[in-house]
């Protein structure tokens, strides 16, 4: 147990630092994924044929190739591009921080999934609502902000909650490219003390706490997004 204490002889501090790093990346990636997903969903629904096909390829490829492989490809492509750009502008090679790289890589992966979630949610909004707003001469952006997004929230939240959980768990994959998030910190702590079970179980508990707390938070959000709507259960009977 004293192995887990927060001060230096124990490794608890390292684990918590790893957890903070993990959460930071998960937050960033989830946010970036939402932005990509919103544009992607609109592109898929209202875009031209070319945009629709390109987005189709993006979501299909990202969802069929393992995250680990994508992380490696995107990591190298990203650093290569940035270094080329930096050299072209006359700077030397740039060292990219792990957090930024992690957010960029996981964000693009998340974007593909949230494109699908948001597209489904937008489609679930009754068309008449958007048409009514358009008929009153609302500009497209205002329709999106005032009508589409609030109305689709209740359909999107369960899917987005799932994506958030995937984001927190996918941060563990960054351990393989050597970024010191929770899983890698745990492995290092375990390897240097030989107390594998203690540390892996502790890390598992931390992840589980994050998951369970997120469940509570998203439950609240869903309730808020559903305010004023009749309960879905009421109409169902089997």
């Amino acid at each position: 147990m004293e192995l887990l204490s927060l001060s230096p002889p124990g490794w608890g501090g390292n684990l918590l630092r790893g957890l903070v790093n993990s959460l930071q990346i998960a937050f960033g990636a989830f946010g970036l994924g939402l932005v990509i997903g919103l544009f992607g969903a609109y592109g898929k629904l209202y875009g031209g044929v070319v945009i629709r096909d390109l987005l189709g390829i993006y979501t299909t490829v990202i969802r069929a190739v393992p995250e680990l492989v994508l992380i490696l490809i995107l990591y190298y492509v990203g650093t290569d591009l940035i270094n080329k750009a930096a050299e072209a502008m006359g700077y030397g090679r740039v060292e990219i921080s792990g957090v930024v790289a992690g957010i960029w890589v996981l964000g693009i992966v998340q974007g593909a999934y949230s494109t699908e979630v948001l597209r489904g949610a937008i489609q679930a909004v009754p068309k008449g609502q958007m048409e009514a707003a358009r008929a009153y001469g609302m500009p497209a952006l205002l329709v999106m902000r005032r009508v589409t997004i609030p109305a689709m929230m209740s359909f999107a939240v369960p899917g987005l909650a799932n994506l958030w959980l995937i984001a927190t768990k996918d941060t563990a994959l960054l351990a393989i490219v050597g970024f010191s998030e929770l899983t890698l910190e745990t492995k290092q702590a375990a390897a240097s003390t030989r107390a594998y079970f203690t540390f892996f179980l502790a890390a598992g508990a931390l992840y589980l706490i994050v998951t369970l707390l997120s469940g509570v938070v998203f439950g609240r959000i869903e309730k808020w997004a559903r305010r004023g709507q009749p309960s879905l259960r009421a109409g169902q009977s089997r």
Partner: peptide
């Protein structure tokens, strides 16, 4: 609720 990588490492190590 926990990453698969962690589960694999827990079992293996």
């Amino acid at each position: 609720g926990t990453p698969l990588l962690l589960q694999i490492w827990l079992l293996y190590y």
